[in-house]
Write a protein that binds this DNA or RNA. Structure first.
Lengths: 160, 160
DNA sequence: TCACAAACTTACGCGAACGTCAACGTCAAA
DNA sequence: TTTGACGTTGACGTTCGCGTAAGTTTGTGA
């Protein structure tokens, strides 16, 4: 899925944009924000394998919900490293924080998948014009309750 | 983490907003978009347990990257159901699509966690003023390469 | 040498998701 | 009765992540 490329590879802006399914404008925008800085051949941008890798990380970062500024911070690890201990320590803290956010995100994604799957099963039963079997009903209960904007009395409420 | 509440619970806008870490303005905004419609006591909004559950789903949907309009569609499952087959089928397709997106996202999150963890280990070794051990170096290699914006010749490139 | 595609810069625009006033109503405590 | 705290409805402002011209330059093939 992620093609490895030779480290001496070079790409035009259009090539790279097309590969990642974005527009050239997007890559220029990232550059303007200081997230990448490709070499120039004349005025034209020429992207290296490292630039390509950075773009890849930027886009994955976006997909998991990070803002561009946050991704930039991650990419600036090099500068942090050269800055010595006083810059390294808070950076470590922020990294730890980000990882925690991601772990929560992982749970959210799991739950969202389960919820959509429950709704999906329910809809499919309806499509077959059947009354959903009990297990499907159970899994879809929360979803159905949401859809109907009402709750059965105390259904599924565990004490505590 | 997610408190279950009695189905006859009621909440003011401020209570609910505070519980979920948003502002009242946010809840009014969702209502204006037709995603919730709490009862009124006079002019004041009064939120039920079902409303609360919907808000919960909205916010989780947001965290996993759905747009509000998409979340609205999910919440409108009831209307879809009452719409009969011709509305149900395309809705099922979109649900399937959303689930696929989420599964890809799950992979992205895993990779992002691994990357940040690699970067973190690397930084911690630097902080200890030690040369990171080989395994850490290996895991952090891609990250370090990004940070330094250069790549060792053909490192880790599996022929393909 | 000319044409033409593809790059460039500059700059304004836009939709999403709220924030932030402003101006007003309501209700309980002092 | 006045003072707040909390609620309401507009309506405009803001930030993010680019889209979209407009006009210019650069490079390559005929």
């Amino acid at each position: 899925m992620v093609k490895p490329v030779a480290p001496d590879s070079e790409f035009t802006i259009r090539e790279l944009a097309h590969e990642f399914g974005v527009t050239p404008r997007t890559l220029r925008f990232y550059e303007q924000k200081g997230m990448i800085n490709p070499d120039r051949r004349g005025a034209a941008r020429i992207y290296s394998a490292a630039d390509r890798a950075r773009v890849e990380l930027i886009l994955r970062g976006k997909r998991v919900g990070f803002a561009l500024d946050e991704i930039k911070e991650i990419l600036d690890l090099e500068a942090i490293d050269r800055g010595g201990r006083e810059r390294l320590e808070p950076a470590i803290d922020r990294f730890v924080g980000r990882i925690e956010v991601l772990k929560r995100q992982r749970e959210d994604v799991e739950r969202a998948i389960a919820e959509l799957q429950a709704g999906l099963d329910w809809m499919r039963e309806r499509l077959e014009d059947r009354t959903p079997p009990d297990d499907v009903r159970r899994r879809a209960r929360a979803f159905e309750a949401l859809a109907q904007a009402r709750l059965d009395p105390w259904s599924g409420v565990s004490a505590g």
